[in-house]
Design a protein around this nucleic acid. Structure first.
Length: 588
RNA sequence: GCCCCUGUAGUUCAAUGGAUAGAACGCAGGUUUGCGGAACCUGAAAUUAAGGUUCGAUUCCUUACAGGGGCACCA
């Protein structure tokens, strides 16, 4: 499929008669306006000067050369504008690509450029005892999509999640649990109550109490916990959690961790992620500490104010603490240990991708620099992909009222909107449940993935999740609509066939064949949003096509072709959405 | 103070150095009972400012202004 590009490039290269230029130097693009053709090259503009000729003349020369060859995929090549060479693909080419999309089905768009490569991708990374918030949802959505895209390039992909099960945030939650112990749900209680209990415990241990005002004896408990924090009990608990030498603490800790992880498990299931590896900070801490200490003598790390640091200034970065003055490894040391553990003990990857929020970009640069010195081979394989922050229109999300938008509240709110939308349609209960889940998750994921990875997303609670226009449900709807047309065609005995081409080429065909290219680009640049915007364009094109033509029509001799076009659209949409981690309902 | 990121229609987002800057929401108007109106069609509406590089700049460089993030024992 992508061979057509190679063919064009080679031809242009030959026509140029410039030995110093290789086919790879030739740039091809899709003009934004289809009136300018399907492919366009600026080669004449770029090399006219060197050849001491006018761009227009050179372009004409190249175009002539191409016409002479009578390439069957090319209907015409013309010169336009300042010296662009525009290529219009032939009907035969489009018919062939429509046929390909149907035959290849679920693998349409896939390639083997990463065949044999092993890729580990770490994402989501929520912390047990704490809430699963929007940031984790973003990381999960992007990480899952990247995993699928990279897998579509033929690589073997392993998904990993790294969770902070030790540290001050955990100690805070345990302290909160101690204070709220008499409210602790018994074993018969529902999971949701346990989760709520945990959330309360955590917020009791933090500066925000807004979610707690309903509980008994609220003020006494807050006072109690503030007193405990002032007296340094947090550090004591933290140490006890590390050392596991206190039965009471262990019991609370184990219970809380278990509830948390089960809860995360439910969320992953809804989101469609299955991790191959789950790492915990407890495992990486000691190891990371050892690595740092071993590299003290050789000067990679230095002692400073009782802590062990990496002086990033030498490399234009900043200093970071790897082991604090109490001798405990910080996140930096743990991450160093994690990289080594991932590779040595679990998976000999060729590439290791870590997806996080961009607020730690600078920190990650320091980490990578340190890793470059200690484990150069691993650093070379490691790639940091960061996503933007989610902000409210009025400013930062967490500081305003102390309310953090949890991923779950977003998910349930969205579900309610979908429920409202479909309440008048009579689906059976099972189907309704499926539709609600797929559509609401699809809406959320799409609204994250349509943005350039790395840019911030402004989140307006009322408007952000849309079901119309530029939205996940719009894509799902278009797919469901196509499926329903195909059902009807089947019922009327019309078989899809791309063999007989008598129709005018539509925009739909001119977009469909591009899918494999889009997938490649999304993979190369680690950017799912290319797929998202492509699918929107594709869906719009299909919907226009649908409005203009009657697809299923026993009296129309080109109906089989239109059915084929519809089938290839459906296959492409399904694959594209799958790469975004969005499921497709057959009906909605 | 220093470092990083970002400034595009009223709003939220697109645009591998290319041609007339593309969508969606919102707004104004429309869609002959034809396979699903979560749809389709028409219209008004934008590159923060000033320089520079280039045949060509939303894109690269410089400066200014505005917003976000980070800068030692949290992650």
């Amino acid at each position: 499929m992508i061979m057509i590009q190679e063919k064009l490039k080679n031809t242009i290269q030959e026509a140029l008669k410039m030995p110093s230029i290789t086919a790879d130097d030739i740039h091809l693009e899709h003009p934004t306006d289809l009136n300018f053709g399907d492919y366009s090259s600026n080669a004449a503009l770029a090399y006219a000067k060197e050849l001491k000729t006018k761009p227009i003349d050179l372009a004409e020369k190249i175009a002539e050369e191409i016409r002479k060859r009578e390439i069957k995929e090319i209907e015409k090549a013309e010169v336009a504008g300042a010296g662009f060479i525009n290529f219009f693909l032939s009907k035969e080419f489009f018919a062939e690509s429509v046929g390909e999309a149907i035959t290849e089905g679920d693998s349409f768009g896939a390639n083997e450029s990463l065949k044999g490569r092993k890729v580990m991708i770490e994402y989501t990374d929520p912390n047990p005892f704490k809430e699963f918030h929007i940031g984790h949802l973003m990381s999960n959505t992007i990480g899952e999509s990247l995993s699928r895209i990279i897998g579509f390039h033929g690589a073997e992909v392993k998904r990993a999640c790294y969770q902070g099960d030790v540290g001050l945030h955990v100690a805070k939650a345990v302290l909160g649990m101690k204070t709220l112990r008499d409210l602790m749900p018994d074993d018969k209680a529902m999971l949701t109550n346990k989760v709520k209990f945990l959330a309360m415990s955590y917020s009791l241990g933090s500066s925000s109490f807004s979610s707690l005002s309903g509980i008994d004896d609220f003020k006494r408990r807050v006072d109690e916990i503030n007193k405990a924090i002032e007296s340094g009990e947090l550090e004591v608990i933290n140490k006890k959690i590390y050392d596991r030498n206190d039965d009471e603490i262990n019991k609370l800790y184990d219970w809380g961790k278990d509830v948390s992880l089960k809860h995360f498990g439910e969320i992953y299931k809804k989101l469609g992620t299955e991790f191959d590896f789950i790492f915990f900070e407890r495992e990486t801490g000691d190891f990371g500490k050892k690595i740092v200490e071993e590299n003290l003598k050789n000067g990679v790390f230095e002692k400073s104010d009782g802590a062990i640091v990496f002086k990033g200034e030498k490399y234009g970065l900043h200093t970071r603490v790897f082991i604090n003055s109490e001798g405990l490894p910080t996140y930096e040391a743990k991450e160093l240990g994690l990289a080594k553990i991932k590779y040595d003990e679990h998976y000999q990857y060729d590439v290791s991708i870590v997806v996080t929020g961009n607020e730690i970009n600078d920190y990650f640069k320091v980490l990578l620099k340190a890793m470059e010195i200690v484990f150069p081979d691993l650093a070379e394989k490691t790639k940091h992909i960061s996503h933007g922050m989610l902000r409210l229109p009025s400013g930062k999300m967490s500081s305003r009222t102390g309310d953090v938008i949890t991923a779950e509240s977003l998910m349930t709110d969205t579900q309610k909107l979908v429920e409202e939308k479909i309440k008048d349609r009579n689906y059976n209960e099972e189907m309704e449940k499926e539709i609600i889940e797929k559509v609401s998750i699809g809406a959320i994921k799409y609204s994250i993935l349509k943005h350039t990875t790395g840019s911030d997303i402004v989140y307006d609670f009322d408007k952000s999740i849309s079901f119309e226009g530029d939205s996940g449900p719009y894509l799902q709807y278009s797919y469901a609509r196509a499926k329903s047309v195909l059902e009807k065609a089947k019922g009327e005995g019309i078989k899809a066939s791309a063999k007989k081409v008598v129709t005018e080429t539509s925009e739909l065909e001119r977009l469909l064949y591009r899918f494999p290219e889009i997938v490649e680009r999304a993979g190369k640049e680690y950017s799912p949003h290319y797929i998202a915007s492509y699918l929107i364009e594709l869906a719009g094109s299909f919907n226009s096509f649908y409005a203009k033509h009657k697809i299923v029509d026993t009296n129309d001799e080109i109906s089989p072709y239109k059915v084929a076009l519809t089938a290839s659209f459906a296959a492409t949409m399904k694959n594209g959405l799958n790469l975004l981690g969005i499921q497709v309902p057959e009906r909605m």
